[in-house]
Design a protein around this nucleic acid. Structure first.
Length: 281
DNA sequence: GCCACTGTTAGCAT
DNA sequence: CATGCTAACAGTGG
């Protein structure tokens, strides 16, 4: 499930123990994980130090000496874990990179194998399509710039929130929570939202994502931080996973529909149906 | 056993 | 360009 708040939680957990660490020899247990690499795979990393760990959208970027950058995407079930070498390695572990002198390993674990890793050489970071196509960071974008990404667009607002090219980092859970907070129906065409509502949407994006980061993310099934600790924002979800339960604002049963193939939960009273185009008669 | 469902997103058809 | 469906994979629950 890792969306922006979960990925941010992972990055914050990695920073103190990864930055400055020297990488050992990587063991790639599931080679298809490595989607893009310049030259000889991960061998180039051995002996290099980690200079920084940061997040871009839902991706984790680990920059190393020599201008090399590791880019992880966790997709549905990926995890980055810090474990002692004595901790058992299960069948879902896809990559192990020892951290020399720290008694720790960085491990990538991914039950469904959707996740990927890119190992980008010096100067190639901006040419990676995975990064290049991403929209702006929602927590670093002002209200006017945010509104501009949506204003006048014909697509449904939920679909646009999920589109990583429009804005980076929002996934299915937080899209529903954001729309509930903004009191916007998920099927509303973006073009039907005036600047006032786009402002409300922008503030909802920020408060929901910040609140979730404060709670260290949502654990629905298997999300954990690098130490294996779950988040607890799921206890504050207003609509996701609450189909049939009473809306916490008005008591109306939460409904679940499908929008663009994605399960979508909302309150039919708080989030009013967009005006349908009426056929003339 | 079978079927539906799951937090992502790339690719392809319409 | 927009929208909608499927696949990639594995596990869970009815």
């Amino acid at each position: 499930m890792p969306e922006l708040p979960e990925v941010e939680t992972i990055v914050r957990g990695l920073v103190p123990r990864l930055e400055g660490a020297e990488l050992g020899r990587a063991r790639l247990l599931f080679p298809p994980l490595l989607r893009r690499s310049s030259g000889s795979g991960l061998a180039v990393l051995e002996g290099k130090r980690v200079l920084g760990v940061r997040r871009r959208g839902k991706m984790i970027l680990i920059s190393c000496e020599g201008g090399w950058t590791l880019v992880f995407h966790l997709k549905m079930t990926g995890q980055l874990l810090l474990a002692g070498p004595d901790v058992s390695v299960d069948k879902h572990t896809r990559l192990i990179i020892p951290l020399r002198g720290r008694g720790l390993e960085l491990r990538f674990r991914d039950v469904r194998k959707f996740g990927f890793l890119c190992c980008l050489g010096p100067g190639t970071e901006s040419s990676a399509p995975e990064l290049d196509a991403l929209g702006p960071e929602p927590l670093e974008t002002g209200g006017a710039a945010f509104a501009r990404r949506f204003r006048g667009r014909k697509g449904r607002i939920k679909g646009l929130l999920l589109d990583q090219r429009v804005v980076a980092g929002i996934g299915n859970i937080y899209a529903d929570e954001i729309l509930f907070r903004a009191r916007i129906h998920p099927l509303t065409p973006a073009a039907a939202l005036g600047d006032a509502m786009l402002g409300t949407l922008w503030r909802s994006v920020r408060s929901v994502l910040r609140g979730a980061i404060d709670r260290k993310g949502s654990t629905i099934r298997d999300f954990t931080d690098p130490d294996g600790e779950p988040g607890d924002f799921q206890s504050l979800h207003k609509v996701y996973g609450r189909e049939g339960k009473a809306c916490l604002a008005c008591g109306t049963p939460i409904r679940r529909i499908r929008v663009g193939g994605r399960s979508t939960s909302f309150c039919p009273n708080c989030q009013r149906e967009p005006r349908r185009r009426r056929s003339r008669h």
